[in-house]
Design a protein around this nucleic acid. Structure first.
Length: 104
DNA sequence: GATTGGGCCGGAC
DNA sequence: GGTCCGGCCCAAT
């Protein structure tokens, strides 16, 4: 197979494709990579070498929760709000996830 | 709503 | 070299 790109590299590639104002779920990315490596994706984000190039803050959980963030959940919330994404800063949940969810 | 088990990658030992 | 553990998780019970 083409292992020129590591698994995490593929995650970043998909991440950067996400337009502003849109969010994606870890399951979507993992499933798009052809597997159920949900945690592998999250791990890639945690190891994200370029948090600026790769908007890991646009990635949320499938249940609508924001989940965690390497720089801090609070930071993630702020970034999402700045991007124009509506979310519940009280319960750390994404609003209208189905609508704001970006599809590859 | 909370808890348990499962499947996947990367790094450490 | 192989093996073990943790992780920004998910789906099912």
């Amino acid at each position: 197979m083409d292992s020129s790109k590591s698994f995490n590299q593929q995650c970043y590639d998909l991440l950067v494709k996400i337009p502003k104002g849109k969010v994606v779920t870890y399951a979507d990315i993992a499933h798009h990579l052809g597997g159920k490596a949900y945690q592998a994706v999250g791990n890639a984000m945690a190891s994200n070498p370029t948090p600026i190039i790769v908007p890991c803050h646009r990635v949320v959980n499938s249940n609508g929760a924001i989940g965690k963030f390497a720089l801090g959940t609070d930071k993630k919330i702020a970034l999402l709000q700045e991007e124009g994404i509506e979310l519940d800063s009280k319960n750390l949940k994404i609003l209208n996830l189905d609508k704001q969810r970006h599809r590859f």
